[in-house]
């Protein structure tokens, strides 16, 4: 069986390069490439508030676009969890939002024709990088820059909750400031994933890994996973 295509759906321009960098590393570490090949062209869908509008019309539209890609095995949606959009009238909750997105995905073929995994980075993709920042000290970028020359004096204990502005944190810490488009993929390439895994509060990163594993397992079994499972109504 030829590997099935895994399509990433991401939020911002920085994620377009960083998310494939991360997922490629994860797929390699777990030896998943026998089952999936990573599509190098993520779809930039925008933030939760955008894809949840009008009955999740944009989310379903982008899933249909992904479904047009040949030999599709699954889609992984990776969004920042710092949304202020309400979910069913309640303050934003990443799990509820993911379940809602999963339910909507099933109306356009997820679970039947392809797998889908929805992951919210808490609070942002960069929060994961903060957890691994000790491994980034003095690491040269591809262009030779060493943007983090010493361990920042204050590393948040729980990057998943504080700081809310992880990008802003990097702007303050990096020598020439932080630009997601310019730097996010470089940091993702350099960061020690085990340092992130070892951090006591990186639940959303663990969720990312387990979600990908669920999708790959389903593809290996010839079935289609939806993760998280939508909440049963009633």
């Amino acid at each position: 069986m030829s590997p099935k295509r895994l399509v990433l759906m991401v939020e911002g321009q920085g994620d377009v390069e960083a998310a494939p960098t991360l997922v490629k590393r994860l797929l390699a570490e777990h030896s998943f490439f026998d089952a999936v090949s990573l599509d190098p062209h993520p779809i930039r869908v925008g933030e939760y508030s955008k894809i949840s509008k009008n009955g999740f019309a944009e989310w379903k539209r982008f899933l249909r676009v992904a479904a047009m890609r040949r030999n599709l095995g699954g889609c992984v949606l990776l969004l920042d969890g710092d949304s202020k959009t309400k979910v069913k009238g309640q303050p934003f909750c990443a799990m509820r939002a993911a379940q809602r997105l999963a339910a909507e995905a099933m109306t356009v073929g997820a679970g039947a024709q392809f797998s889908v995994a929805i992951v919210f980075a808490c609070m942002e993709f960069e929060s994961w990088l903060i957890a691994g920042v000790p491994s980034l000290v003095n690491q040269p970028f591809t262009d030779g820059r060493k943007e983090i020359s010493e361990l920042p004096s204050r590393i948040p204990d729980n990057p998943e909750q504080i700081p809310r502005d992880a990008k802003g944190w990097f702007r303050r810490v990096m020598r020439t400031g932080y630009s997601a488009t310019r730097d996010q993929a470089e940091l993702t390439r350099l960061v020690d994933l085990n340092a992130i895994r070892a951090h006591p509060s990186m639940r959303s990163f663990q969720r990312m890994e387990s979600a990908i594993k669920e999708v790959v397992d389903a593809i290996r079994e010839g079935s289609h996973a939806v993760t998280p499972l939508p909440q049963k109504s009633g």
């Binding site: 062209h41 249909r64 676009v65 047009m68």
Partner: peptide, 21 residues
């Protein structure tokens, strides 16, 4: 696959410069 997405009006042509290059 992108031609099909445009024909099916799943993708707007302008999104070939943004969402799905």
């Amino acid at each position: 696959e992108q031609r099909e997405s445009l024909r099916g009006e799943l993708l707007r042509a302008g999104e070939l410069l943004t969402a799905d290059p």
